[in-house]
Design a protein around this nucleic acid. Structure first.
Length: 876
RNA sequence: GCGGAUGUGGCGGAAUGGUAGACGCCAGGGACUUAAAAUCCCUUGAUCCUUGAUCGUGCGGGUUCGAGUCCCGCCAUCCGCACCA
């Protein structure tokens, strides 16, 4: 006897168990079928899955299940990005071990994912915090070291003096540590680096071939890598007019010298400061130069400041300037004239003043620039402010006047003017000419400057992959021999005091040097967790116990056919993973360079906010959806019925209380309704607004399909229903295409349309086929309902392993078409005719229409446009 | 400032240059019911002189027999980057 209603509470667990028992989502390395590797970005085990994970994994799951039904051997794995700071914070706050906290979270989240019925190969599950994973990572790190792609250097880092740890740039908010609130210091520390810059050009070029990546992500990576080509050259500082030689001592512009130091500072020249280098992408405009500017942190600026308190004060002021976007935008271009003069490299008789300027950055290029105000907006602002010459050197059409007017720099193309040997050349030719001359005369050279920096991977933390090196007083930095891997984290650690527990640990770091055998110490830094996520997709495909992966098995699965995740990883994770893959190819371990053939970045799940403005302080007080009764255009509190305001639809966040918990909604509506909601309505790359009404509609549709499936009767009879048969085949084709293109919202709409038509149809074998087809089409989206119905109608085996319905191409085309009839482009009537009706016949039918005759109102038809099977347009 | 995306009913959104608003949600009306839930049916862009017509895809132009779609110029919103030399 068929149940009246589909009960997800029973069916969900039944089929989840059945899939587990049948092990049907295990990927077989040796399968003869074509392969497909579908991957979603693995989660950090924070404790609970977020609704955003549900959306992400539902999309991947539908693709994976559909591919499986279409005959592919699908690899669809899941794991845990399990190292990271939240575990250490939990350890400090709740006195639990990061490991047990993390493993408990993993267990909880795994159960949550299972409740959603994802078709995952759990036999390949991995957690980056386990030695069998991070030990192999250490091996790879040593391989990269051996290949010269890993090095150590002293580098300035953000140091939190209270927590006694390095902070990433993202963890410094307005100059303070995000946890401690302490003012962050810059500290010089020896850090491990990965040579990502060696692959800068490669990573940039590679973007060109990633045609299945969003344009947006490629652009972001391109900007991040930031390639600039130009000229680097040297400015020589001129001896001062007083004849004392180049030296700060000669600068008396301030008129005040507070220096009481009896020993005179040696001239700049003797301190190696008789010149400085600048970089420019516009060497062609060199004859338009009117000043040189150096960054406040430039060594020359520091030298000037030592003698000149005014300069020192200015530098101080620059340092204090805010770093937030708003402050930068409003920051005025300001400078301080050092009184120094440099010689123009193309004509030493020309001299330029040297400014310390707040808009010159020490960490880009050389930390010094030349200013050509006519053709650079920033330089123009600066020149106008300080009354410097503004000389035109690129002609904007006929405008060749050397005196540049206005306050908008000209940066477009043109011919060089007022530039001696460059006159008449186009900009690119002039650039090449200046570089050639600089190289011939040995005062500069063509150079490429990158924004991309080498990847600093040292973290002074416990909960990460130990960096496999040993510091020996005699032998220096020695790699841990591979047979001693993994270097395992000690379990007995103390989080009561701030700082790195590995450094404090009484015994862990003390080891013998692998080379000389004398007592030595382990590296106590651990790797940035982005290293862990830079190769997990390889380990999923192949995870032998004795090495990171088997290249022959990788070759079968990689690159990932479809990668799905959030846009927030557009740069960091996706760039690091691309780098790591290239680096492994470079050292001959794999033979592909790009890890992800196709990338899809899904939108966020959003929700309305509910709030009331607090009378006392004017701040909004937020309420969570389950405290609120939502009317059609108002909302009120459940507790006392008082009205509250409905705010903007924004990303779910705890502070705005507009969150829904996946467990709650799965318990209330069932996994299939939740999955269906995640796929409906919004295009997957856009934000999806969660709504109570929406999920209820989805739950209703689950029941409606259940009733439809319950009508299935293989022995049903009735007249042929060719229309429904055509629609059935068209829907299969359409859903296949939509799913392949990840346009799930369109697939959903088609399924609704077929369900509507099937319900309305009269009983017939065609109707039965439509029902059975619908069942197969929704199987990847609503797998529990589908299994339950499949077993009800007597399907063989699991529907998860059933074949995708076939398409008869002959049935994709209609035999009857509706033709639009227009008069002067306006729709006046429609005609239903046989497909392929000839032009003249269509014209005659159109003219015979009463509506058309009325619209024509006796006017003469001058021209008739006929598009066969589409429309007739009568032009009068 | 630079780069990118988006803009269509009350809402989410469909539409190879060819019938704008598919499909869903909300809303309204009806059927069934003692009643409710559930379900089913109908209506649902606006306006008007309602058997039909006019207007309508952010705004202003243009190309075309025909424009949500193509071109030019704006506006708004969102996202990313940012004194990048």
């Amino acid at each position: 006897m068929t149940a009246e209603r589909f009960d997800p509470a029973i069916a969900d667990t039944r089929w989840q168990r059945a899939w587990d028992e049948a092990q049907c989502f295990r990927a077989d390395d040796n399968s003869p079928k074509p392969r497909s590797y579908v991957l979603e970005m693995f989660p950090y085990p924070s404790g609970r899955i977020h609704i955003g994970h549900v959306r992400n994994y539902t999309m991947g799951d539908v693709l994976a299940r559909t591919k499986r039904m279409q005959g592919f051997e699908v690899l669809h794995p899941m794991g845990w990005d399990a190292f990271g700071m939240p575990a250490e914070n939990a350890a400090m706050e709740k006195q639990v071990h990061p490991g047990s906290w993390t493993r408990e979270n993993i267990a909880n989240m795994k159960a949550q994912l299972k409740r959603l019925g994802f078709a995952l190969d759990w036999s390949r599950e991995l957690a980056t915090c386990e030695p069998d994973y991070y030990g192999q990572e250490q091996a790879l790190f040593l391989d990269l070291y051996a290949a010269g792609l890993v090095y150590r250097k002293e580098s300035a880092v953000n140091w939190d003096p209270v927590d006694m740890t390095v902070l990433a740039n993202e963890q410094v908010i307005d100059g303070r540590g995000w946890r401690s609130g302490a003012l962050v210091e810059k500290r010089k520390l020896s850090q491990w680096f990965l040579k990502i810059t060696q692959f800068a050009d490669d990573l940039l070029d590679g973007l060109g071939e990633l045609d299945k990546w969003p344009e947006k992500v490629r652009l972001m990576q391109e900007n991040w890598i930031g390639k600039s080509q130009g000229l680097q050259f040297t400015f020589n500082i001129l001896p001062s007019p007083s004849g004392e030689g180049p030296g700060v001592g000669s600068i008396q512009t301030s008129g005040i010298s507070l220096s009481t130091d009896p020993t005179p500072t040696p001239p700049l020249k003797e301190r190696g400061l008789s010149s400085f280098d600048v970089f420019t992408t516009r060497p062609d405009t060199l004859f338009g130069a009117s000043f040189a500017a150096i960054a406040a942190e430039h060594p020359l600026a520091a030298a000037v400041a030592r003698e000149n308190p005014e300069a020192a004060a200015f530098i101080d002021e620059c340092r204090r300037g805010g770093t937030t976007a708003a402050e930068m935008e409003t920051a005025e271009k300001r400078g301080y004239d050092t009184g120094l003069q440099v010689a123009h490299p193309l004509d030493p008789s020309l001299t330029l003043p040297v400014y310390i300027a707040n808009f010159v950055l020490m960490d880009y290029g050389t930390g010094a620039v030349f200013g050509c105000p006519a053709h650079d907006q920033r330089d123009l602002d600066f020149a106008r402010k300080y009354g410097l010459p503004v000389l035109r050197v690129v002609a904007d059409g006929d405008l060749t006047d050397p005196v540049f007017q206005g306050n908008e720099a000209y940066t477009g193309p043109g011919k060089l003017v007022n530039s001696r040997f460059l006159d008449g050349m186009e900009v690119p030719a002039a650039k090449a000419a200046v570089i050639a001359r600089a190289e011939a005369e040995r005062w500069g050279e063509g150079k490429t400057v990158w924004r991309l920096r080498d990847w600093g991977v040292s973290r002074q933390r416990y909960w990460g992959t130990p960096i496999p090196f040993i510091h020996c007083e005699i032998c220096g930095v020695v790699p841990v021999p591979k047979k001693q891997l993994p270097v395992v984290l000690p379990e007995d650690v103390d989080f009561a005091t701030p700082g790195n527990p590995l450094l404090r640990h009484p015994t862990w770091k003390h080891v013998d040097c692998p080379q000389c055998g004398k007592p030595a110490t382990r590296e106590t830094d651990t790797l940035d967790t982005f290293v862990d996520s830079s190769w997990y997709f390889l380990r999923f495909a192949s995870q032998p116990a004795d090495r990171p992966f088997d290249p022959a098995v990788l070759a079968k699965w990689l690159p990932v056919e479809q990668y799905i995740g959030g846009i927030e990883h557009a740069i960091l994770h996706l760039l690091y993973a691309r780098f790591w893959t290239r680096a492994l190819k470079h050292i001959g371990q794999i033979d592909f360079a790009e890890p992800f053939a196709s990338l899809f970045t899904q939108g966020m799940v959003t929700h309305e906010t509910y709030f009331r403005t607090d009378a006392a302080n004017g701040q909004p007080v937020y309420f969570s959806p389950d405290e609120v009764t939502r009317g059609s255009d108002s909302a009120s509190l459940k507790s006392d019925g008082s009205p509250i305001e409905v705010g903007r639809v924004i990303k779910m966040s705890k502070s705005k209380k507009n969150v829904v918990d996946p467990d709650d909604i799965v318990a209330k509506y069932g996994a299939d309704a939740v999955r269906w909601f995640m796929l409906s309505d919004s295009p997957p790359e856009r934000d999806l607004p969660w709504s109570e009404a929406g999920i209820e509609g989805c739950a209703r549709f689950v029941q409606r399909l259940w009733r439809l499936f319950a009508q299935f009767d293989a022995a049903a009879t009735g007249a042929d229903d060719v229309k429904l048969r055509r629609l059935t085949h068209q829907t299969v084709q359409g859903v296949s295409d939509d799913v392949a293109a990840l346009q799930f919202n369109k697939a959903v709409a088609r399924i609704y349309a077929l369900a509507n038509a099937t319900e309305k149809a009269s009983p017939s074998p065609d109707q039965q086929t439509a029902i059975r087809t619908l069942l197969l089409l929704v199987a990847p989206m609503m797998p529990h309902l589908a299994e339950e119905a499949w077993s009800m109608i007597g399907g063989t085996g699991l529907i998860a392993e059933a074949a995708w319905p076939p398409v008869d191409p002959a049935l994709l085309v209609e035999d009857e078409v509706t033709i639009a009839v227009q008069v002067k482009g306006k729709l006046r009537d429609t005609l239903t005719v046989a497909k392929g009706t000839p032009r003249d016949e269509l014209e005659a039918l159109a003219l015979a229409s009463a509506n058309v005759q009325r619209a024509l109102d006796g006017a003469e038809v001058k021209k008739v446009i006929v598009v066969p099977d589409r429309l007739v347009n009568l032009v009068i």
